[in-house]
Amino acid sequence: MADLFGVFSVAASGMEAQSRRLRHVSENIANADTPGYRRKTIDFQTAIDRVTGLTRVNVGPVTLDRAELPRIYDPGHALADEQGYYDGSSVDRMIEIADAREAGRSYEANLRMFDQARQMSQGLLDLLRR
Rank of each mutant, 00 (worst) to 15 (best):
L54T: 11
E108W: 07
L111E: 14
I42E: 05
L111C: 01
D115A: 15
A98E: 11
R39S: 01
A103F: 10
V57A: 10
V59I: 12
V51E: 13
V62R: 09
R38M: 00
A78S: 13
L79F: 14
T46Q: 13
Y85L: 04
T55N: 11
D74Q: 11
R93N: 09
D92I: 11
R50T: 09
F44C: 00
Q45T: 14
P75T: 12
V57I: 15
Q45A: 12
I72Q: 04
G53E: 13
G84Y: 06
R93S: 07
T55S: 13
P70L: 03
A103D: 08
G76A: 11
G76V: 04
D49Y: 07
V57E: 09
D49I: 10
E68T: 15
A80R: 08
T52S: 15
Y85C: 03
A67E: 14
R112T: 14
N110E: 02
D92K: 10
V57W: 07
S90A: 10
A103N: 12
D74E: 12
A80I: 13
G36S: 08
E96I: 09
P70M: 05
S106D: 14
A80P: 11
A47P: 00
Y107H: 10
E102P: 00
G76W: 08
R105A: 10
D81V: 13
A103E: 07
A47R: 12
G36E: 07
Y107D: 02
P75N: 07
A100I: 06
P61S: 07
G76Q: 15
T52Y: 06
D43F: 07
Y86M: 05
D99S: 14
Y73T: 03
Q83N: 15
L64K: 06
I48F: 09
A117N: 02
Y73K: 04
F114M: 07
Q119Y: 11
D92L: 09
Y86W: 08
V62E: 15
G60H: 08
Q116K: 03
Y73L: 12
P61W: 00
V51H: 07
G60T: 11
V91I: 08
P35E: 10
A100N: 04
P35A: 03
T46G: 02
G84V: 12
N110V: 03
T41Q: 05
Q119F: 05
R38Q: 07
G76F: 10
G53Q: 03
D49V: 10
G53S: 06
R66E: 15
P75L: 06
R50W: 07
D87G: 00
I97P: 00
V59M: 01
S90K: 05
R105K: 14
V91D: 04
G84H: 04
D115W: 00
D99R: 06
Y107K: 01
E102T: 14
A80K: 12
R112W: 01
G104M: 13
P75W: 06
G88M: 06
R101Q: 09
A100L: 11
R105F: 14
P61F: 02
